[in-house]
Amino acid sequence: MREDYRIVDELYDGFCQRAPIGLRTPLQRLAHTLGLVPSTDVGWSEVFNHEVTLAAPLVLSDAMPNVEQGIVRDATLAHLLAVIEAFGTDRIEDSQVEGTATLRGALGQVRAERDEALSRVAGGAGGPYAEAEAETLAAIRLEREVLSSQSSVSIAEYERVSTGKQAVGMPAALALARVAGWAPNRIAMLDRTLLAIWFALQAHDDVADWQQDAERGGAWAIALAQHKSAGRKMAVDAMVHGSGVLADMLRLSRRRYRAAGTRAAALGAASLARWCREREQEVGLLAQLEGRHPGYVIRFRALSALEHEVLQ
């Protein structure tokens, strides 16, 4: 994450300090409790690689110069807490972490602060997070159902279900656009832009993590490969790599970044547009390499710790 977006750590620390005393330590350790970092002293800015993930409203704010910085900070706080809460819920739903009373209490505090922050942005209007949470949770459960059934899935169905999981990534940024006085058509365009970005990130992640996802009960790459292989029986790795679905998913991710970048530029969101173009190029290159050398993505990940030493 770029240095100027590390404000997310400052915002999260402030939230922890305002929380009830009994929840401060669980909140400070939340990333570690969720299995996202190896120690308790790693800030959220180091958990995620891309500033857009936790700080989308801040990244967008260059297209909204008329909005006060305090409002941008509140929107960013609401967004980062929404993302953190969604990860926590997903990890509990996925049985990757135990949903202890302490953890649920901490996530409840995250939700409360998220809603308050969004309310400050929206001028006291009720926050839409409950609806977004419900949509995300329904999509997560549908995903589990589809993947555990081991049925084949088309890429259109994959995109539909996966996009549903991204609902919590929208409210804060959209609220900020309303504060900026954007017309409904521009807000609708922003909505499509963000959905494309969240899906593009998700698709890339579903490629990189497909083996771990498979161990946990199901992976989209397998369901898509089954669809493409028309039921032919073969070993899972050979089917996934041989079918070319990983490259297909990366190409889809690249197309979504391209669409998002075009829209972001049209909206005057220069930082976001630039970030989308960078991602488009990176994912496009990876798609080419995966297409040329099936399994490249997985091997790249396995060897990533050697990358700096070997390639510098």
Binding site: G35, L36, V37, P38, V42, E46, V47, F48, N49, H50, T53, F87, D90, L201, Q202, H204, D205, V207, A208, D209, Q212, E282, V283, L285, L286, V297, F300, R301, A302, L303, S304, A305, L306
Partner: peptide, 24 residues
């Protein structure tokens, strides 16, 4: 060193299991 990374996956998983990729 290579064994630690490739076989034991000891080094490069420290900051990688969350749902956002670090790949390109």
């Amino acid at each position: 060193q290579w064994r630690g990374i490739v076989v034991e996956e000891r080094i490069n998983v420290a900051l990688s299991p969350w749902k956002e990729s670090n790949l390109y």
